[in-house]
């Protein structure tokens, strides 16, 4: 039964995507070819893969430390449409890591500041900032018109909501989280790889201190995974969890397996 409703949502999502693609698909402009020349010239990349980035629509959930880094690099790379969502206002204590913002932004909505910053960085892409809290009631509606979601949130309650919506709609999720000097990242491909609930059935530590540069490290790892995904290069973190320790510069890459009884993506939920 759930499978049927997922198909229905997928059709809505496809319709929204094709309407967007009519406006953005097509050859790269001469300006695009110059702007992105340093990545187009990467062996195996080329103009065709850059065109795929231009057609891609990505939602960045959370405009904090991870979201600042991830969204700035996605905009710089030429992702055609970025929707960035956050319901908070900028505070002085955000500025050690949230490089979207400056002192003049304190008190302003993060979503509108982030939109302005991304547009100023790259006027050739479409950007939409949304000031809204992600809930079980609006998550599917918020993500159904994008091709991928980047999890830059700061709490697992909302992460589970986004995870479940992505699984339901079959939309890839690029997870990242950080604490003090360390962090983690994994890429969820629905129906193929483990989801967040498979690996983290219980929420981890609450409110944590974070070194800004570590949030930047994890956010840019997420952006790298997103760019590779749209360029047709296999995301290295699909089905894997990267554990990064920036204090001692060590890391571990762990192979993950889907959990059969996972309440979100478990096999028993699919019929």
């Amino acid at each position: 039964m759930m499978h049927g409703s997922r198909e229905g949502m997928k059709e809505d999502s496809d319709a929204a995507k094709s309407s967007f693609n009519e406006k953005t698909d097509g050859m790269l402009t001469e300006r695009d070819a110059i702007r992105y020349s340093r990545q187009i010239s990467i062996l195996g990349f080329g103009k065709e893969k850059q065109r795929k980035l231009k057609s891609a629509k990505v939602m960045v959930a959370g405009a904090g430390g991870l979201g600042s880094a991830a969204a700035l690099y996605l905009a710089a790379a030429g992702i055609g449409y970025i929707k960035i969502i956050d319901d908070d206002a900028v505070e002085l204590s955000n500025l050690n890591r949230q490089i979207f913002y400056g002192e003049e932004d304190i008190g302003k909505d993060k979503a509108s500041c982030a939109e302005k910053k991304l547009k100023s960085m790259n006027a050739d892409i479409k950007v939409r900032g949304i000031k809204e809290k992600i809930t079980e009631d609006n998550a599917v509606e918020l993500i159904k018109d994008v091709d991928a979601v980047v999890d830059c949130l700061d709490n697992f309650d909302t992460r589970y909501i986004i995870n479940d919506a992505c699984i339901k709609l079959g939309i890839p999720l690029f997870h990242g989280a950080c604490m003090e000097f360390g962090g983690q990242a994994m890429t969820v491909i629905p129906e193929e790889t483990a989801c967040l609930r498979c690996i983290f059935p219980k929420p981890p530590h609450k409110k944590v201190p974070i070194l800004g540069a570590v949030a930047g490290t994890i956010g840019t790892i997420q952006a790298t995974e997103v760019v590779k995904f749209f360029a047709g290069i296999e995301p290295a973190l699909a089905g894997k969890l990267l554990i990064y320790d920036g204090k001692f510069f060590s890391y571990e890459l762990i192979e993950l397996k889907r959990r059969e009884n996972c309440p979100s993506c478990g096999v028993s939920n699919e019929d």
């Binding site: 979201g67 700061d154 989280a177 604490m179 530590h205 409110k207 944590v208 974070i210 949030a215």
Partner: peptide, 10 residues
């Protein structure tokens, strides 16, 4: 064996 903490912040 590797032992590590899952983290939440962003």
């Amino acid at each position: 064996v590797a032992i590590f903490p899952p983290v939440e912040g962003g």
